[in-house]
Design a protein around this nucleic acid. Sequence first.
DNA 1: ACAACTTACATGCATATACATCTTTATACA
DNA 2: TGTATAAAGATGTATATGCATGTAAGTTGT
Lengths: 139, 139
Amino acid sequence: MEPFEHCLNLELRKANRVLSQIYDSFLAPSGLKTSQFSILRAIKFLKNTTNSELQDTLVLDQTSLSRALKPLIRDGYIDVRVGVDRRQKQLLLTVKGRTLYADAEKLWLDAQAYVSDKLGPEMKRSLLNMSDIVVELKG
Amino acid sequence: MEPFEHCLNLELRKANRVLSQIYDSFLAPSGLKTSQFSILRAIKFLKNTTNSELQDTLVLDQTSLSRALKPLIRDGYIDVRVGVDRRQKQLLLTVKGRTLYADAEKLWLDAQAYVSDKLGPEMKRSLLNMSDIVVELKG
DNA sequence: ACAACTTACATGCATATACATCTTTATACA
DNA sequence: TGTATAAAGATGTATATGCATGTAAGTTGT
């Protein structure tokens, strides 16, 4: 009897949904979703950055990022300035954004610790390694 | 120098985005997205099923599934009947739905083969195993 | 039989995500 | 110096996803 062939994509999506909900529940007190937290975090590390640099960092479509930034700009966490190349926009955290990030980072650390503990170091390495390999498939 | 601590959730999300785009591009000729394909596939294997059985199978929130079904019902791929328990709905593939699934399954097989080849058997096992473990975290 | 509770599903709302396409600005080259 | 091309973003459209909440229908205890 041929075993059921699991769809790699569905399995990954299921894991993604579960993991995102876990991180989201930890981050909830900050009012941020994990995707928003990731954007703030990326900008924090990249300092003054641009839309396209963020796209690469987050492996996110240009149009997706464009929209994802909106609520963060609207709520005053990210500041936008026209670049030297006037097509570009410079993105940076506002004071409010840095404060929020600092608070949310504590919650994120809890989530990361919780999941790390549940997975164990081996499975954690496996997740990171596998994710890396899959991202490499991007053409 | 402490290495950068990767967010497990972000890494998984990035992989998820890339993989979903690959599967979506293979499935595009059918007009289905992978999430829709997964729903048809699940109903095909479960035969006559219900909303809540699908939720468990797909690890999907009740409200998410409720909405995901809409376009598939609207386009005539899934038939809905009230169950014996009149709160429930019986879901089954229509003839049109079975035909579409059969066509899309060929495209899915190509995607699955493409990705399996790129990943290799070990990484594939790793993906499935890791996904399974993460889904287990769901409380 | 009836009130309290629970279960199944839908809806309002907000964000997440990407494809096709449009606008604006820069660059390259005849 | 124009003009074709490329690059950066935004927008229209559609689905994906989940939380809070609402509604209808079944179940339970008295």
